[in-house]
Amino acid sequence: MLLPPLRGHSSEYIDKAIRDNYKGKYTIVMGDLNAKVGQRKAGEGKTMGSFGVGARSRRGDMLIEFAEEQKLVITNTYFKKDKTRYWTWESPNEATRNQIDFIVSSQRGIVKNCEVIAKVCITSDHRLVRAKICINTILARLEFINNKKKESINIMKLKERKDEFQLKLKNRFACLDVEDIDLDTRCDKLTTVMLEEAASLASTKKSENTKLEEDKTIEALNLRRKDLRKKEIKTRAEKIEYAEMVKTVRKKRRQRTRKRKYDIILQTLKSGRVPNAARKQDSNKSRICQLRHEDGTLTSDRSQILEICAKFYQDLYSSTKPETDTPKCKANSKKKDELPSVLQKEVTHAIAQMKDNKAPGIFL
């Protein structure tokens, strides 16, 4: 979030500017907020740390209230520093020092450090405040992709309920006000309305009523696992719980898949549709759809494909060539080359390469 300088404006204007522009997954609000938050009080553990300084002012109460409402944290108060590394503003007569410059973040876990830079000469009565921010980009990208996934719609089911779909769209479009907006926003609104109505009539997503008990159990465990994974800083107990949760979710998913396969096979055996069941179970395996005969013609017939494969491997492993005697090497047909004698300089070089105070070995 980036805002223009707000110096000279009223507190109502500043509050409205921050609230109107507050959005996004990672939000950082920083600058001269002209507020003294002081020490942490009871019930403010989610908003500020235990390293606040000074007494709280009226604007400090406003900042704490805003942070609690928007679920923000004041990062300056979470890291223990020397007493001289807290204050950010000094009066002209050098008699008063306060902490009024803050870095406020939407997520505590991404801020690894926050400190005041003292040894920087700037023409200001404020000191620089620096924060170290680390973001797990892989995890953030996965969450972004999962949030952007569109809900799949059953087209055939939607065609069957075409009249109802058109009636719903007509009613929604009649209540939609798109007169005083630009073309792109109007297009986005119309698209959203059509997708919402299509999903309400022909969504492929399972409803809560059709979910089995095992599905609900796995979903609850998976939600807990995701909550633990999102935490940037985990305790030892949480790390152990996360590892056990991963194993439990995987085990229950395997059991559910095995049970569903068993139910499908049992159902198909009762109905006499064994080939269809086998085809469903092997849907993830690649199959040979076509093969070419020796004359170059293609065939997709299953029996002919099996015959071609059988003939290929039969010709591959059955050799028709007569065995030939391989000539044996005569022993001692050539004289072995005599090794040259060891030179004195080679011995000297080997001794020089040896380490001091080490055993020479069994060969020396």
Rank of each mutant, 00 (worst) to 15 (best):
Y262S: 10
R236I: 01
R302Q: 07
V274A: 03
K270Y: 06
R260C: 04
L221R: 00
R250P: 01
E219P: 00
K280V: 07
R250I: 03
I218H: 04
T257H: 12
T235R: 01
K251S: 13
R224Q: 14
K239N: 09
K280T: 10
F312D: 10
K230N: 12
I218C: 02
K216T: 09
S286A: 09
E238V: 01
Q290F: 15
S300E: 12
L269F: 05
E241A: 14
G272D: 01
Y313R: 04
I305Q: 10
R229N: 08
Q290D: 05
I218K: 05
K247W: 06
V246N: 06
E294C: 02
S283Y: 02
A202W: 09
E241M: 07
N209R: 13
A243L: 03
L269A: 14
D215Y: 08
I264T: 00
L212S: 15
Q314F: 13
I308F: 07
P275D: 07
I233V: 13
S300T: 14
R256D: 03
R256C: 07
S286T: 12
K216N: 12
E232Y: 14
K247P: 01
K211W: 03
K206W: 01
S207V: 03
L228D: 05
R292H: 04
S300R: 07
T210A: 11
T210W: 00
I233E: 13
M245G: 13
